[in-house]
Structure formats: C-alpha cells, structure tokens
Design a protein around this nucleic acid. Structure first.
Length: 257
DNA sequence: ATGGCTGCTTTGAGCAGA
C-alpha cells in the first residue's frame, strides 16, 4: 500500500496538478492538508472521477484536511478533530482506518512568530494532539501519523540552519512537542531510509527558494515500530513543486509492504 | 533583506501561510 501526504495549499486551486499527480504517483491513500474549503464545496466528484473516495473535514478559507482512498479500499472509523477541540475549533485532524492501518492526518498550526499568540496556541495544540494519541492508540498497533507538522526536528532538516535558529518551526519547544510523540512510540520514517542532508518538503515561494533548494523538512510520516517494519521506503516527490503556481509543499510518499 | 510569493476573501486590500 502506498500512502501519500501533501499540503496542497487549496485543493480547488490545485485540482489540475493534484489529479495529474495522483495519476502518475498512483497512491492508494492521499492525505491532504490546507484544503481551504468547506465540505459542501469540496471537489468530491472531481476526485471520484479520478478514482478516489474522500473523507473530508474542511472549513472556509483556512486549514482543512482530507483522507482519500482509491476505490475498493474502505475508509473506516473516520474521526474528525480532537477530543479536546472546542465546537468551532480549526479543522486540522482527520483519522481513518484503511486496510487495517490507522492513519491520522494532521495540519499542525504554523505558530507565526515567537511573540504571536499563535505560537503558544501551536504548543498547546501539540500537547493536546499528544494526549489524543496516547488516549486512543497503543504503540504496538499499526499506526501512521502523517501531515504538515510545521516543525523541523533536526539541523539536517534545514537548508539554512543559522537563519532559522530559534525561529518558529525550529524552536526547542516545538521540537519537544513532536519528540514527545516519537518517545511515545513512533519513528520518523523518512529519516530511517534517507539520513543524508539536502532533502526538504517545503520551500518558500519567495526569493527563488526552491531553485536554490533552500527548504525545510516539515512534512513528516511518523510510524509505530509495527508499521515501520512493513515500510519499504519514504520519498519526497519534488516534481510538483517545479510546476507553475505549485503548492509550496511537496508530497511525501510512504511505501508499506 | 521585515521584503520577497501565493491563495483566500461579500473584488480588492488585508490576512495568513512558513
């Protein structure tokens, strides 16, 4: 089974690139973040026309997540949001079971800046997310948490570590929030297969960051050991980022035997 | 380099992303 995760930065403005990529990469599951559309306006039919059924959890303009699965694969036990969410919470998590694998698709808050209220919101969100995982799941089961974590865990995940030192996406407090998940019983599957530097998942739209490969690896696939044992490879597909008016994120593809 | 791109929004300047 091939499971992909992609922050598409608006599913509607990305439809042409998304459907072309799905046809080429042929994932069995596509987890999207930042769909930026309320459920009633989500392009359900267009995705069905290219062979994917979607479980969606969106909102107008901001955030929004989706798990799509190739026809024939049942999307079971869908859960939207966190136990600790307020009724009108930002829509950042959707979970489902497909082929016996529990998949939790997340769009972690950006945090904006150290002096912004969004930064403590991000840290609190990570804490609440950890509580959600620890409450509902066991490290022994086959579980994947994938998505846009908006955290670069290591220096090797940053093209310009000095420029980013202490900045949002790279602070110790944010990293501690993600490491708490790892300590619970998950591995950063991409790094297990690709320890080398220069590999990123996001590049700023500005300053020709992609052309210079000045990126960050902030899109992750965290797997329990039980699932990591079945993982043949994890890749970041840079090709969609080369297109005209792309998402600023590249898809991450997890191959499970 | 506090700009620089891009997508969204009661359509056009301001917010948000990262």
């Amino acid at each position: 089974m091939r499971i992909a995760s992609w922050n598409v930065n608006s599913v509607r403005s990305r439809m042409e690139q998304l459907t072309a990529w799905l046809a080429r990469a042929a994932p069995d599951v596509i987890c999207m973040q930042e769909t930026k559309v309320e459920d009633a306006l989500f392009p359900v039919q267009a995705l069905e026309e290219v062979g994917y059924k979607c479980a969606i959890f969106g909102q107008k303009s901001y955030n929004g997540v989706c798990i799509g699965a190739r026809f024939g694969l049942a999307i079971e036990d869908v859960k939207r949001g966190l136990d600790s969410d307020e009724p009108d919470a930002q829509r950042r998590v959707i979970a489902a079971t497909i082929e016996g694998v529990r998949i939790v698709n997340v769009y972690v808050p950006n945090g904006e800046a150290l002096d912004s209220p969004k930064y403590p919101f991000k840290l609190d969100w990570l804490s609440r997310f950890h509580a959600e995982i620890a409450t509902h799941y066991k490290p022994e089961q086959e579980l994947m948490i994938c998505g846009d974590f908006n955290v670069a865990l290591e220096t090797v995940d940053i093209a310009e570590p000095k420029r980013w030192e202490g900045q949002v996406l790279c602070t110790e407090a944010e990293r501690a929030g993600v490491r708490k998940l790892l300590d619970w019983g998950l591995v950063d599957a991409f790094r297990q297969h690709h320890p080398e530097p220069g590999l990123y998942s996001w590049w700023d739209y500005r300053m020709a960051a992609f052309a210079k490969n000045k990126g960050l690896r902030i899109d992750l696939a965290l797997l329990t050991k039980a699932l990591a044992a079945r993982c043949a490879d994890v890749t970041i597909d840079k090709r969609p980022r080369e297109l005209n008016r792309p998402s600023d994120h590249a898809p991450v593809v997890v191959e499970v035997k």
